[in-house]
Nucleic acid binder design. Structure first.
Lengths: 346, 346
DNA sequence: ACTAATAATGTGTTCGAAAACATAAGAAAT
DNA sequence: ATTTCTTATGTTTTCGAACACATTATTAGT
């Protein structure tokens, strides 16, 4: 079973021409029952797999993929996504793909709608976007559907039959992971869940993470913990945090639901003789620095790069190889400490 | 820059025939300076990238890759590797590759040499193997070199110029990760490093991991810990462990360097009112079960599946797309607790 | 000056799938 | 019986790179 069968092989085996075989394979009719049977008999015996290289050489259509991405200049959280896209482009540069990224302002629904309008104008074959704004996202998804544009989403989930695939993390479980880590570190005491909300994208993330976090403890029915939620907004983070710490001298652990753990770490590290366990998100430079100093205990890696990489490559492989796109791709929730951080950063 | 330039395009632009362009591109000489200059001028302006689909269609050689794998029936540690190979085969089934796996007995150097002999007979284009036996591995690598067979290794590193690439984890750092986790959990006390050695493959792993583990603590110059090394061998693991525990009543943490943490966990879980932190390796069923019960605190995921997957795909992509194979591919050291384990298991 | 040798360049075929195009055979219509 | 239409089937071209093969131009040798 070394060499692969070709259409020509099948034609010879069935005693017909390759044109007829082609018609049978593509169910285009105009084939006599006799020829159909002969060919089917051959197909039942051998395992024909079309040579996708040859197919792609012939159908040398340029597939157009558009990606909507929040501007990393506005929110650096999205920066690794660009690398993910670049990696995908690089990997498939041999094939005919035209991949274009559109930046929108993650704090403006209007910007989101506007850039989607621009994408629609291009009538691409597929679109990848993070549906930050629920209502607006459903709106644009509907429009893409009407134009037969495949839509893949990443970062956060929204429900719509028109969406082909979602790539991201299970945020609820991500909260549970954080809870488990704090539980191990502390065993008891007062814990604060802190949301530092500088961008709307986090609204959904924050909720789900806190839900998972609290769910873990409520499941244990552990009475040794008290959990307090605190919402902070820049530029008053430091003042409000200091007040909170003064009011709660027994605080022993903090879970920060966004990538701004370093802001908390900075304040905490200035307090002498006080060890408060800190768990945050994302391997941005400031966070990793406090992780290495031992101020932050764990970071949870959200793998933004891989999200876009898989979002794009799954579309490409669908077009190239008819590979089915999974409905949901859940990335692992990576636990990072000072010792393994470097392996996740590139 | 939507459409790609072809050899025909270049020929037309330079006013020569595609045969001449081909000779220039492949540096096969027999080209006049005049023609060479004209073509180079064009090549300097445009960015020519050969269509790899067309190239592969023409050169439809069947590449032969052989993989040597310790028999998973003898040591289940290697079982996930099969899935990794299968995934790679599946992903590139459209291309002409013949991939064959040879099982050898991981406890027998003779078996290793014999199977390598069988592989050599096949004169494949590339080989992927875990160099479990240092001397023997160097021997076979030399033979492959003589026959111009590309050799990639995984699992553990050995030094040889004839080896194209290594995929695996940094075992030293993996030990440090474990140390950091125990440090966080305990802060002080007596720690045991336990090696349960049922297979020679672990010898190298065990050493490096312990070295990393101890290195972490020695770097901290932390006097609050005492670290003891314990070597256990089946079937006497349980008895010797019990003795050790009786002799060391203050033991507070255990680091198991192999995938047999569940054996320790079983014994510990039977002791009431005693919490000993346990860190082990590998997401095998027994381990995950004790992880979920809270007996094992963390498992470190060695990602065997991904090792073979990347080992194979990097070879394939080298043949198909001239993609350079990285000298070293270090996989992240994944920290696993009860809450994120499911995302690493398939 | 004419042939032989060599260098330079152009042309044609191949890979496998796809689809346009061409032809053959048979049935219906005049 | 001849033409027309339909249906089934076979043949050819296309995609781009690679390379074998064919052709032309140039120089060397007698």
């Amino acid at each position: 079973m070394d060499r692969k069968y070709t259409i020509k092989d099948i034609a010879e085996m069935a005693g017909v021409s390759k044109g007829t075989v082609d018609r049978v394979l593509h169910k285009r009719g105009k084939v006599s029952d006799e020829a159909l049977n002969k060919i089917n008999e051959v197909l039942n015996v051998i395992n024909y797999e079309p040579n996708l290289i040859a197919r792609n050489l012939k159908n040398n259509k340029v597939y157009r993929i558009c990606i909507l991405l929040p501007d990393p200049e506005i929110d650096p959280y999205w920066k690794p996504c660009i690398k993910g896209i670049e990696d995908a482009v690089q990997e498939f540069r041999a094939y005919n793909f035209s991949i274009k990224t559109f930046f929108f302002n993650p704090e403006s629904k209007k910007s989101f709608l506007k850039k989607n309008g621009a994408v629609l104008e291009m009538s691409p074959d597929a679109v990848l976007l993070p549906p930050l704004f629920h209502k607006e996202a459903l709106e644009v998804v509907k429009k893409y559907e009407e134009q037969n544009v495949i839509v893949n989403i990443f970062n956060n989930q929204i429900q719509s039959d028109s969406i082909k695939s979602f790539v991201g993390q299970d945020l609820f479980h991500s909260g549970r992971v954080a809870a488990k880590l704090l539980d191990l570190l502390l065993k008891k005491g007062q814990i604060a869940v802190i949301h530092i909300d500088e961008s709307i994208k986090n609204a959904i993330h924050m909720q789900e993470k806190e839900r998972g976090f609290r769910n873990y403890f409520s499941e244990r029915k552990n009475q040794d913990y008290t959990i307090t939620t605190l919402k902070l907004k820049n530029p008053n983070v430091e003042i409000n945090l200091t007040n909170f710490l003064n009011e709660n001298p027994d605080l022993s652990g903090i879970f920060i639901s966004t990538s701004k753990a370093y802001q908390i770490a900075k304040a905490i590290s200035e307090i002498k003789d006080k060890k408060i366990a800190i768990i945050g998100y994302d391997l941005i430079e400031n966070n990793v620095s406090y992780l290495n100093q031992g101020v932050i205990d764990f970071l949870i890696h959200q793998n933004q790069k891989k999200q876009t990489y898989l979002g794009v490559t799954s579309i490409i492989e669908f077009f190239l190889f008819d590979k089915q796109i999974p409905n949901t791709i859940l990335l692992p929730i990576d636990i990072v400490n000072s010792e393994n951080a470097s392996f996740y950063i590139e």
